[in-house]
């Protein structure tokens, strides 16, 4: 195995005998220019365009309660202020995939969101849990704080940099799962959740989740 490594590296070095280093010029737009209200508006427009449902609410717990029924998986750290009443909340304690398959929905927060692409990003931070939670159940309800929405993709990637450096797994989600494999006709709902609901709120106090 180390023979393969040595030979491969030797091949690369031999192949590169004639090259010069390349400087990267980043003339593209790294930071957005829209005002806050327009950023939020664009986020809503674009994530709806890709089949997600968006609800704006100053009281997410109430808004979420109206959406959910049956058994809902959450993480232990999800603040009480975000927990809906009237549904069976199950705190994830290492549920198996088969157990998750029996659950109706997942309720999480997110790490950041991106307006230009209508995306939310989860990095396993507080309120989000491990990746399987938002994957196996058929409905994902994600609470997005307005302050966490950035405008551009480079801004989103920048926001996620600390998590990446810590080695946390990250998922960027843009609408429910979809396929265009049959005549390029878009069909929503394949293996990931068939429905994605985003609950937008702008009350910073509601989500005073301690950062770990």
């Amino acid at each position: 195995m180390s023979a393969a490594r040595d030979e491969l590296l030797a091949r690369i070095r031999a192949a590169l005998a004639d090259v010069e280093p390349v400087a990267v010029t980043r003339a593209y737009r790294e930071v957005g220019t829209l005002d806050r209200a327009s950023v939020v508006e664009r986020f809503v427009e674009r994530i709806e365009d890709y089949g997600a449902t968006v609800i704006r609410s100053s009281d997410p717990a109430v808004a979420v309660a109206a959406l959910l029924s049956g058994r809902v998986v959450i993480v232990h750290e999800l603040p009480a202020s975000l927990r809906p009443s009237g549904v069976e909340l199950i705190e994830d304690d290492g549920l198996t995939a088969l157990q998750l398959d029996e659950i109706d929905a997942a309720l999480t927060t997110c790490a950041a969101a991106c307006a230009e692409t209508g995306s939310i990003a989860l990095d396993g931070g507080p309120g989000q849990g491990r990746r399987a939670l938002t994957l196996v159940p058929d409905l994902h309800v994600c609470i997005v704080r307005v302050a966490d929405i950035v405008e551009t993709v480079p801004e989103l990637i920048d926001r996620l940099a600390p998590s990446a450096r810590e080695g946390r797994p990250i998922v960027i989600v843009s609408g429910p799962s979809a396929t265009s494999d049959i005549e390029l006709a878009r069909v929503e709902g394949v293996h990931g959740p068939r429905r994605l609901v985003v609950v937008l709120h702008d009350c910073p106090t509601v989500m005073s989740i301690p950062q770990t």
């Binding site: 980043r26 890709y50 993709v153 801004e155 990637i157 080695g167 998922v171 843009s174 979809a178």
Partner: peptide
């Protein structure tokens, strides 16, 4: 890491004509 900010714009739009593909998975070890 920041290079992804470039490629995650170019790839979905060039490939499927989407602003972003539904799922991008990123993990280390």
């Amino acid at each position: 890491w920041r290079d992804l900010g470039v490629f995650l714009q170019l790839l979905p739009r060039s490939a499927t004509g989407e602003r972003m593909n539904p799922y991008t998975s990123l993990w280390a070890g």
